Computed example of a mutant assay.
Amino acid sequence: MAVAAILMPAGFFGASAGRGRTEPNTLLALVYVGGALLAAGVSSLGVGLLTVG
């Protein structure tokens, strides 16, 4: 989950950086990758909590 906390803001600011930019660039994909990693981490945490308890 710690990687998601780095990838999502990096993708957001990286995609919006640049002079006169009106559309995001390909770094926007980092936001989706970070979101997928966050969802996987939260899901594995939930499964772990349910199986241990």
Score class of each variant (00 low, 15 high):
L49W: 08
G53H: 10
G53E: 04
V52E: 10
L30F: 00
F13M: 13
T51F: 02
G14M: 03
V31T: 08
V42Y: 02
N25A: 06
G20M: 08
L28I: 13
V52P: 08
V52M: 09
A5I: 15
A40S: 06
L38C: 12
R19V: 00
M1I: 06
L37F: 01
A5C: 14
G14F: 00
G18P: 08
S44K: 15
L7S: 06
A15S: 15
G53P: 11
A39I: 07
L37W: 06
G53M: 09
L37Y: 00
A40W: 01
V47K: 15
G14N: 05
L38S: 07
G35H: 00
A15G: 11
L45T: 12
N25D: 13
R19T: 11
G46V: 02
P24H: 13
S44T: 09
Y32R: 11
M1N: 15
V42S: 08
N25R: 10
L38K: 08
G18D: 05
G11F: 11
G48I: 02
E23W: 13
A40R: 12
V31S: 02
P9V: 07
R19M: 10
G18N: 06
L37Q: 04
G18V: 12
T51I: 14
N25Y: 14
T26D: 06
L30Y: 01
T26P: 12
A36F: 03
E23G: 03
S43K: 14
L49K: 09
Y32L: 13
R19K: 08
S43P: 06
G48C: 05
L7K: 03
L27V: 06
G35A: 12
A29T: 07
R21P: 04
L50P: 00
L38D: 03
S44E: 06
V47H: 10
A36R: 02
V42F: 13
S16A: 11
S16F: 10
V52Q: 08
L27W: 05
V52C: 01
R19Q: 15
V3D: 14
A29F: 09
G35P: 00
L50A: 09
A36H: 05
S43A: 15
R19I: 02
T51W: 07
G20F: 08
G34N: 03
A4S: 04
M1P: 14
T22D: 12
L49F: 11
I6W: 12
S43R: 11
A10S: 14
S16L: 09
T26K: 15
G14Q: 03
V42G: 02
V33W: 03
L49T: 14
A10D: 02
G46W: 15
A10V: 03
V33N: 00
G48N: 10
V31M: 04
L28V: 07
L28N: 02
G53K: 06
L7V: 04
A15H: 05
A29E: 01
P24I: 03
A2K: 14
N25T: 05
P24V: 00
G48S: 10
G41D: 12
F12Q: 01
A5P: 07
G18K: 11
L7M: 12
L7G: 02
L37H: 13
V3A: 10
T26G: 12
G35K: 00
E23F: 15
A5V: 15
